[in-house]
Design a protein around this nucleic acid. Structure first.
Lengths: 140, 140
DNA sequence: TATTGTTATACTCTATAACTATA
DNA sequence: TATAGTTATAGAGTATAACAATA
C-alpha cells in the first residue's frame, strides 16, 4: 500500500520533531530549567502580565500544577506574582530583572533554527516558510 | 532587523510543533498512556526485541528510569521482559498479544497527519516531503 | 452560584549515586 | 575492570478533588 504525500511528509516531520525534542531537552537542561518552565518563560511577555490560568492553558496542564511551577520560579528570583487590580481573584506573573536576562537567553536559544533548517538552500527555506504559512492559515 | 527565511520558517515550525504537542498529549492520555510510554511503545518493533538501554536512548533519559517505565507497562500486561540469550546482562522487552493491539492503535494514531498537513494542497504536501527529505539528509 | 487560584494526595517522570550480575 | 540493569532517593510534573477568596 502506497503512502500518500501527506503521510510521508508527516513521517519525516515526526523524525524531525523527535530530533528537535532531544535538542530542546538538552538545551533547556543546560539553562537549569525543566521543559514546562522553559515553555512558560518563553510564553511570558515582558510587556504584558500573564495570569496563572493562561499559563495552565499554554502548558496544557491542570491549573493546580501552575502553582508549584510558579512557586519554584519565584523561589529562584526569576518571576514574581502580582495581584490583579481589577479582579482580586486573579494573580499575574511578571519577570524580575534577573528573570528578564534568563528569558533573553531562552528566547535566543529557541529562536535558533536547527541544522536541518539552516542546512537547506535559501530556496527550500523560502518554500518551507510559504508552505507553513498556508498550513497555519488552513488549520486556523 | 529583518528575519531570515530560516528563522521565519523555524518560528512557524515551532508553532506547528506546539499545536502538535497538544494533540499528542490529548491523544496519548485517551489511550491511558504517559508520553514516555507512548514514545517507547511506538519505537518498539514487534519483530525485533528492544533492550532497556535502547529505550533509554530513545526516550533521552537515564537508564534507571526505564526500569520503572517497563515495570508499569509489564504490570498492565502490555509488554514482557525477556533475558537475552547471548549476553545475560541484557534484558529485552517484547509485546504481549494485548500489547500488540495497543501498539496498533498508537501507531495508527500517531501516523495520522494533523489538519495543518492534510489541509495543504497535494502540491504543497509533495514539496514539503521533498524539502524534509533534503533536510534530513543534510542533518545526517 | 461561578470562577481563580491554592492545597492535599497519589502517581509518573527524571537525574544521581550506589549496587548486582554478568562480561 | 567495564557494562546492563536495578534500587534508593530526591525533586519535579501531572491529574483529581476539596477548599478559600472573590466575583
Amino acid at each position: 500500500m502506497k503512502k500518500s504525500p501527506a503521510q510521508e511528509a508527516w513521517r519525516l516531520l515526526w523524525d524531525f520533531m523527535l530530533e528537535n525534542r532531544r535538542r530542546f531537552l538538552h538545551a533547556v537542561a543546560e539553562l537549569g530549567l525543566s521543559p514546562p518552565q522553559a515553555f512558560a518563560l518563553r510564553h511570558m511577555d515582558p510587556d504584558r502580565p500573564v495570569t496563572m490560568s493562561e499559563l495552565a492553558d499554554v502548558l496544557f496542564c491542570d491549573a493546580s500544577n501552575v502553582t508549584g511551577l510558579v512557586d519554584r520560579l519565584e523561589a529562584r528570583g526569576i518571576v514574581e506574582r502580582r495581584a490583579d487590580e481589577r479582579d482580586r481573584r486573579v494573580k499575574t506573573v511578571v519577570f524580575t530583572p534577573e528573570g528578564l536576562e534568563l528569558r533573553e537567553r531562552i528566547v535566543a536559544l529557541m529562536n535558533e533554527p536547527p541544522p536541518a533548517i539552516t542546512g537547506l538552500s535559501r530556496k527550500d527555506q523560502q518554500a518551507l516558510l510559504e508552505i507553513f504559512e498556508r498550513a497555519t492559515a488552513t488549520a486556523a
